[in-house]
Amino acid sequence: MFIRSLNSEKIKIQWYFFFLLIICETLINSFLSFIAVGQDFALNWNNFYTYAANFHSMFFFPLLAGLFTTLLYRYEHNNSNWKNILTGSIPKHYIYLSKMIWVFLFLIITQLFFFLSYFLIGQILGAEGTLPLFSIFKSLIGGIIAIIPLLALQSWISIYIKNFGASLVIVLGLIIPNLLLTGMHSNLGGWFPSTIPFYTMMPQGTQFSPRVDLFSLYIIVAITSTVYILSGSISFRKREW
């Protein structure tokens, strides 16, 4: 029955628009990393990754998580489609969870695009040394796991926010403070869900590296994800439509 809910969600998605957003993100991030690299003369794959992941993990990746969620919820808030799908014979929280899973899949695609653009721009700039595939892989997966708390929180908020503009303001409001929050140690900053992708994606041992304790960070991720997902699906079920 859950598969049916996922498939039904799939029909609503405006694929071209979601991919357009991903491509825009990739282009803008590539451009910014390209500029940032400008002063660096000894460019190798390792330090180029730091440049590329910096903006992506701090702003764009969490931003897309918020945008995708908002868009999927917009379909239902517009023209009050809740009444239509919630009177079907399907458990209410299935709908909530399917939306989250679709956003999650799109975020995985975003990570792939990010990797491709990193590889291409690196080639163009003539990055030296060997491609640190293993640590990149770790960083990409880390980003995907780290986005879960934000995704869950954003879904929870989106249940209540009908207005698209208001929803965007909240998305930005969650992400812009990252500039300051990511300066804190992960034990503290990790409680703010928007910061976690930065902590897990940025390579260690560079001048830009955040102070991270991975073990405690993943515990924070597990705790906040569980809390947000549970509270979200409970309030979704209880909400009066």
Partner: peptide, 23 residues
Amino acid sequence: VESPSYYGHLSGYKNLEVLATML
């Protein structure tokens, strides 16, 4: 219930397909 519910960007057929798939 009240005003009609629909996904404006989808065709009438797709709108019904959303429900048919779900149910």
